[in-house]
């Protein structure tokens, strides 16, 4: 981990905050190995977005803008990332865990014949070299793992790596030469259902209000879960049950196979608390559960529990919060 490369994540040209967690992890890795780290930004707006990363200790910022990178297609992005990694002698590639990095980084690992760890929550070392901790079995086990080979790849849980402080020094910004690369053309972008919500993303919010089977319709979800989130300035999330029932959008799902969040406050509204859901939120600082079933497993992990019908309790809660 002498030469670490962070893959920044952009959303339509804007740097996603989770990138700061990856930078913090890179600083940690560089510190442990006595090495340096660099950051790679890809796609439209990468140059502008690099401005937000100038003062975090990177040895250099690499900007890869190219017509072939107009959409974040893993096939093409992986070619560009592998090209930069080879050129820079990168031995450790990291990014914050998200659908972007989970699509891209294993493909890069395949191209570079590198071993990979997903959802790393701790980077440490003993006398023999770097050690990683990661969660598996839906959060029911934490593994201490050795990752071997000339190149290592990892995604990490953003919540486990608090953003690193700003530094005085400013990193140089370099344009990546992508000429002469053979771009794969087997995938083509067709469309994206753009999220139109004004609410923050659940993975980046301090407060998340999440709904489960206790909510019966989309309108109720918006009124109760959305209303409570808005009263608190938080994000909304959903259990798998509501997504499967067509009540909430896929991108709201929190759990083992959806998003993993660790906010300051998580309010579970009518969520029973299957282990797969709990895997996605149990690192929250304060968990609140509202459920009419006193035996719901969610109460086993909740700091504050209220046995109540969400249809009565939540409107009252919104009303009281707005009264302040």
């Amino acid at each position: 981990m002498k030469r670490t490369l962070v893959i920044a994540e952009l959303d339509h040209g804007v740097l996603k905050p989770c990138t700061h967690a990856a930078v913090a992890a890179a600083r940690r890795a560089a510190e442990l190995a006595g090495g340096t780290f660099e950051i790679l930004l890809l796609g439209p707006g990468a140059g502008t977005a690099s401005g937000a990363l100038l003062n975090f200790g990177a040895a250099a910022l690499h900007v890869a803008e190219h017509p072939e990178l107009a959409e974040p297609l893993a096939d093409r992005y992986a070619v560009a990332v592998a090209h930069v990694a080879r050129g820079r002698g990168t031995d450790f590639l990291i990014a914050a865990a998200s659908t972007f990095s989970k699509d891209l980084l294993p493909r890069v690992a395949g191209l570079l014949d590198a071993g990979m760890l997903s959802d790393v929550v701790e980077i440490g070392a003993d006398s023999s070299g770097p050690l990683f901790k990661r969660v598996l079995h839906a959060g029911n086990a934490i593994a201490t793992v050795i990752l071997e080979g000339p190149v290592r790849v990892a995604t990490l849980r953003a919540a486990a790596f608090p953003p690193a402080p700003r530094l005085e020094s400013t990193a140089p910004v370099l344009a990546v030469d992508l000429s002469g690369l053979a771009w794969p053309d087997g995938t083509s972008f067709v469309a994206r259902d753009r999220k139109t919500s004004a609410r923050p993303d659940a993975t980046e919010a301090r407060i998340v209000v999440s709904g489960g089977r206790g909510i019966k319709t989309s309108e109720d979800f918006e009124r109760l879960v959305g209303g409570l989130a808005d009263a608190l300035g938080g994000a909304v999330g959903s259990s798998r049950a509501l997504v499967d029932a067509g009540i909430t959008a896929n991108s709201l799902q929190i759990g083992q196979t959806g998003k993993v969040v660790a906010p300051d406050l998580y309010i579970a509204v009518g969520i029973s608390g299957a282990i797969q859901h709990i895997a996605g939120m149990k690192d929250t600082k304060v968990i609140v559960a509202i459920n009419k079933d006193p035996d719901a497993p969610i109460f086993e992990v909740a700091d504050l529990g209220l046995v109540a019908d969400v249809y009565q309790a939540v409107p009252e809660m919104i009303e009281r919060l707005q009264r302040r």
Binding site: D75, K102, L105, R107, A109, S118
Partner: peptide, 21 residues
């Protein structure tokens, strides 16, 4: 193991187009 890696690695190794999730 919740890794979510094999399909993408395979795509990279073989140079095959990939669509995940």
């Amino acid at each position: 193991d919740d890794s979510n890696q094999v399909g993408q690695m395979l795509g990279g190794m073989l140079g095959l187009p990939q669509a995940t999730f």
